[in-house]
Design a protein around this nucleic acid. Structure first.
Length: 173
DNA sequence: TCAGTGATTAGG
DNA sequence: CTAATCACTGAG
C-alpha cells in the first residue's frame, strides 16, 4: 500500500474524481487506531464557472482552501448539522474539489464524516503529509464499473451545470 | 412528504 | 446588525 502523492491531486477534477473510486480512505484516530475505507461515491465541483461550486462566487474565508494546490482538505458545515468532506484538486488558483459522498459501510456524505469523526479541524489538512487522514492505492482488483449521474442537491446551479454528469458511483460488474 | 440546525454570506 | 441560504438525514 502506498499513499497517493501530490501529483495525483494536481490534475483536473474530472480526472481525479473518478480515479478516487476504489481507492482507500485512511483515518488514524487519536488513540492511534487506523481504519481504512473503500471510496464508492464522489462528486466533482469545478472552478469559478461551475455555479454549483462554492468557489464560483469568489474567494471567501470558507472557499480559500480551494484556491490552493491539490491535495488539501476542504471541510464545511451544511444545514447546521453535517460536515462535508472534500479534497481540493488541480493547481493553485484553479478552485476545484471532490466531495466524498460515500465509502464502504457509510453511504452518505453526512454519515461518513460523523463516523470518521471529521470536523472543521480538518479544514486545510494536507493529505500528503497528514498523520490522521490520507488516501492509499488499493491492491484490490478493480472489479467495478463507474456510473455517472447529475449531482445531488444543486438545483440552484442553473440548467447547464446542474445537468452535468459529475457524480461518480462504483457499480458491481 | 418535511423539520431540525447553525456557519457563512451579502446587504443595510 | 439582520435575514436568506444551504454538496443532508431520519422519522413518519
Amino acid at each position: 500500500m502506498s499513499r497517493l502523492q501530490r501529483d495525483f491531486f494536481t490534475r483536473d477534477v474530472l480526472e481525479v474524481a473518478p480515479d478516487l473510486l476504489g481507492k482507500i480512505l485512511v483515518r488514524k484516530f487519536d488513540d492511534n487506531s487506523i481504519k481504512k475505507y473503500l471510496i464508492t461515491e464522489v462528486e466533482a465541483y469545478r472552478g469559478h464557472e461551475d455555479l454549483a461550486c462554492h468557489a464560483s462566487k469568489g474567494r471567501t474565508p470558507r472557499t480559500e482552501i480551494m484556491f490552493h494546490e491539490g491535495g488539501h482538505v476542504y471541510v464545511y458545515l451544511i444545514y447546521g448539522m453535517y460536515w462535508m468532506l472534500n479534497f481540493v484538486t488541480d493547481l493553485k488558483d484553479t478552485p476545484q474539489a471532490v466531495l466524498i459522498r460515500g465509502i464502504e459501510g457509510f453511504d452518505g456524505p453526512g454519515k461518513l464524516t460523523k463516523n470518521l469523526l471529521i470536523d472543521k479541524s480538518f479544514y486545510g489538512e494536507d493529505l500528503i503529509s497528514s498523520n490522521r487522514l490520507w488516501i492509499e492505492n488499493s491492491q484490490i482488483s478493480k472489479d467495478f464499473k463507474i456510473k455517472t449521474t447529475p449531482r445531488i442537491g444543486i438545483d440552484y446551479a442553473g440548467d447547464i451545470y446542474k445537468n452535468k454528469l459529475w457524480r461518480f458511483i462504483t457499480e458491481k460488474n
